[in-house]
């Protein structure tokens, strides 16, 4: 089934807003704005229609946090979810797409968004002794030279 038809069926079935687009290669990417509560039903419907490949989950920080679920199945589709900064919770889609686990863990540790029902919420990329907060957030500057100096001092003390 073509992505346009899938989109049409999906919107009719769940009563969603009409899609917008963003740039893509070679064709434009369809963007569908949904609410966090609709996520599971939309992903389940997509699975029914044969869209199984989730490329990744991107998180963006504006005034709100935005999650982008990039699907690909011989056509592009991005689900867009906006989250209020005081309620950073979305349901995990791991039960529907087991391959989403690493993407969700990465967003969780980098931005502090809680994926409810994530089977293994251990850190994925950050070190075991990480105490620097959520490194990808805009207000986080853990890479300043001050942090570097601090670390080298610690090391000199520890290396003898």
């Amino acid at each position: 089934m073509k992505m346009e038809n899938i989109l049409k069926k999906l919107i009719d079935a769940l009563g969603l807003d009409s899609p917008t687009t963003m740039l893509g290669i070679p064709t434009e990417e369809h963007v569908l704005q949904i609410l966090p509560t609709q996520l599971l039903s939309v992903v389940a419907k997509l699975g029914e229609y044969g869209v199984w490949h989730l490329s990744t989950i991107t998180c963006l920080q504006d005034e709100r946090f935005i999650l982008l679920y990039h699907f690909w199945c011989f056509g592009n589709l991005t689900l867009r979810i906006e989250l209020e900064p005081d309620d950073l919770r979305v349901p995990s889609i791991c039960p529907l797409i087991p391959g989403a686990e690493y993407y969700e863990r990465e967003v969780q540790e980098m931005y502090g968004i809680e994926f409810q029902g994530l089977p293994n919420p251990q850190p994925l990329l950050l070190p075991d002794n990480w105490k620097g907060g959520y490194p990808m957030r805009k207000d986080e500057h853990s890479n300043s030279s001050a942090a570097g100096e601090d670390r080298s001092k610690k090391l000199k003390g520890g290396l003898s």
């Binding site: 963003m22 740039l23 893509g24 290669i25 990417e29 490329s55 990744t56 990039h70 690909w72 592009n76 991005t78």
Partner: peptide, 14 residues
């Protein structure tokens, strides 16, 4: 905003 995909030796790069 733009999404770019390519086929690396190991598969899809996004």
């Amino acid at each position: 905003e733009v999404v770019s995909r390519a086929e690396a030796p190991r598969g899809e790069v996004f």
